[in-house]
Amino acid sequence: VEVSPDIYQQVRDELKRASVSQAVFARVAFNRTQGLLSEILRKEEDPRTASQSLLVNLRAMQNFLNLPEVERDRIYQ
């Protein structure tokens, strides 16, 4: 799965849209901590040159964001 270069903005938009914390998003989207998500968003590494471990996390976030909005909102509950 190709990771979109605007994945970082997509995540920020989703945090605002759903009014969820980084901690909640990190847990449900890719089963990691708020600290890691914060670092990923701060660095904004180009997905095309990202490490394998970062790509795994970015893909998981993208797959989560590809779910229908209704389903994502249900998962946040």
Results as ranks from 00 to 15, higher is better:
residue 2 E to N: 15
residue 2 E to S: 11
residue 2 E to V: 15
residue 2 E to A: 06
residue 3 V to N: 04
residue 4 S to Y: 14
residue 4 S to N: 15
residue 5 P to I: 07
residue 5 P to L: 08
residue 5 P to T: 14
residue 6 D to V: 05
residue 6 D to N: 11
residue 7 I to F: 08
residue 7 I to L: 10
residue 8 Y to E: 01
residue 8 Y to P: 01
residue 8 Y to M: 03
residue 8 Y to K: 01
residue 9 Q to M: 10
residue 9 Q to V: 14
residue 9 Q to W: 09
residue 9 Q to H: 14
residue 10 Q to C: 07
residue 10 Q to G: 07
residue 10 Q to R: 14
residue 11 V to H: 00
residue 11 V to F: 01
residue 11 V to C: 03
residue 11 V to S: 00
residue 12 R to S: 13
residue 12 R to V: 06
residue 13 D to M: 14
residue 13 D to L: 15
residue 13 D to C: 03
residue 13 D to E: 15
residue 13 D to V: 15
residue 13 D to K: 15
residue 13 D to N: 15
residue 14 E to F: 01
residue 14 E to V: 02
residue 14 E to H: 02
residue 14 E to G: 01
residue 14 E to S: 01
residue 15 L to Y: 02
residue 15 L to T: 03
residue 16 K to A: 14
residue 16 K to H: 13
residue 16 K to W: 04
residue 16 K to G: 09
residue 16 K to N: 09
residue 17 R to P: 01
residue 17 R to S: 01
residue 17 R to K: 05
residue 18 A to F: 05
residue 18 A to W: 03
residue 18 A to C: 15
residue 19 S to E: 14
residue 19 S to L: 13
residue 19 S to N: 15
residue 19 S to Q: 15
residue 20 V to L: 11
residue 20 V to S: 02
residue 20 V to T: 04
residue 21 S to G: 07
residue 21 S to L: 03
residue 21 S to I: 03
residue 21 S to N: 12
residue 21 S to R: 04
residue 21 S to Y: 03
residue 22 Q to I: 05
residue 23 A to W: 10
residue 23 A to R: 11
residue 23 A to D: 15
residue 24 V to K: 02
residue 25 F to V: 00
residue 25 F to W: 10
residue 25 F to L: 05
residue 26 A to Q: 13
residue 26 A to G: 06
residue 27 R to N: 08
residue 27 R to M: 11
residue 27 R to T: 12
residue 27 R to H: 13
residue 27 R to E: 14
residue 28 V to Y: 06
residue 28 V to N: 04
residue 28 V to K: 03
residue 29 A to H: 01
residue 29 A to F: 11
residue 29 A to P: 02
residue 30 F to C: 08
residue 30 F to T: 04
residue 30 F to E: 03
residue 30 F to G: 07
residue 31 N to G: 10
residue 31 N to S: 10
residue 31 N to H: 09
residue 32 R to D: 14
residue 32 R to V: 06
residue 32 R to Y: 05
residue 32 R to C: 15
residue 33 T to E: 14
residue 33 T to C: 07
residue 35 G to P: 10
residue 35 G to D: 12
residue 35 G to V: 10
residue 36 L to P: 07
residue 36 L to G: 04
residue 36 L to I: 10
residue 36 L to M: 14
residue 36 L to Q: 11
residue 37 L to W: 03
residue 38 S to K: 13
residue 38 S to M: 09
residue 38 S to H: 08
residue 39 E to G: 08
residue 39 E to C: 15
residue 40 I to M: 15
residue 40 I to T: 04
residue 40 I to N: 02
residue 41 L to T: 02
residue 42 R to T: 14
residue 42 R to D: 13
residue 42 R to M: 12
residue 43 K to V: 10
residue 43 K to W: 06
residue 43 K to E: 09
residue 43 K to S: 12
residue 44 E to R: 10
residue 44 E to W: 01
residue 44 E to S: 11
residue 44 E to F: 01
residue 44 E to C: 09
residue 45 E to D: 13
residue 45 E to V: 13
residue 45 E to W: 06
residue 45 E to Q: 13
residue 46 D to K: 05
residue 47 P to H: 05
residue 47 P to E: 02
residue 47 P to G: 02
residue 47 P to Y: 03
residue 48 R to H: 13
residue 48 R to C: 11
residue 49 T to W: 10
residue 49 T to D: 10
residue 50 A to V: 10
residue 50 A to I: 07
residue 50 A to K: 01
residue 51 S to H: 12
residue 52 Q to N: 09
residue 52 Q to M: 08
residue 52 Q to T: 12
residue 53 S to W: 08
residue 53 S to T: 13
residue 53 S to V: 12
residue 54 L to S: 10
residue 54 L to A: 11
residue 54 L to Y: 04
residue 55 L to M: 13
residue 55 L to R: 10
residue 56 V to S: 14
residue 56 V to R: 10
residue 56 V to M: 09
residue 56 V to E: 12
residue 57 N to R: 07
residue 57 N to H: 14
residue 57 N to I: 13
residue 57 N to P: 06
residue 58 L to H: 00
residue 58 L to Y: 01
residue 58 L to P: 01
residue 58 L to T: 02
residue 59 R to E: 12
residue 59 R to P: 01
residue 59 R to I: 07
residue 59 R to V: 13
residue 60 A to Q: 11
residue 60 A to T: 10
residue 60 A to C: 12
residue 61 M to R: 00
residue 61 M to A: 06
residue 61 M to D: 02
residue 62 Q to A: 12
residue 62 Q to F: 04
residue 63 N to C: 14
residue 63 N to A: 13
residue 63 N to T: 10
residue 64 F to P: 01
residue 64 F to L: 05
residue 64 F to Y: 05
residue 64 F to D: 00
residue 64 F to I: 05
residue 64 F to W: 13
residue 65 L to M: 13
residue 65 L to K: 00
residue 65 L to P: 00
residue 66 N to C: 08
residue 66 N to I: 05
residue 66 N to Q: 11
residue 66 N to D: 14
residue 66 N to A: 07
residue 66 N to K: 08
residue 67 L to P: 00
residue 67 L to K: 14
residue 68 P to Y: 03
residue 68 P to L: 04
residue 69 E to Q: 12
residue 69 E to S: 09
residue 69 E to F: 07
residue 70 V to D: 15
residue 70 V to K: 15
residue 70 V to L: 12
residue 70 V to F: 13
residue 71 E to Q: 12
residue 71 E to T: 10
residue 71 E to I: 04
residue 71 E to H: 12
residue 71 E to R: 07
residue 71 E to W: 04
residue 71 E to F: 06
residue 72 R to A: 01
residue 73 D to G: 04
residue 73 D to T: 06
residue 74 R to C: 15
residue 74 R to G: 11
residue 74 R to V: 10
residue 74 R to P: 02
residue 74 R to H: 07
residue 75 I to G: 09
residue 75 I to L: 12
residue 76 Y to F: 05
residue 76 Y to P: 00
residue 76 Y to N: 02
residue 77 Q to A: 14
residue 77 Q to K: 07
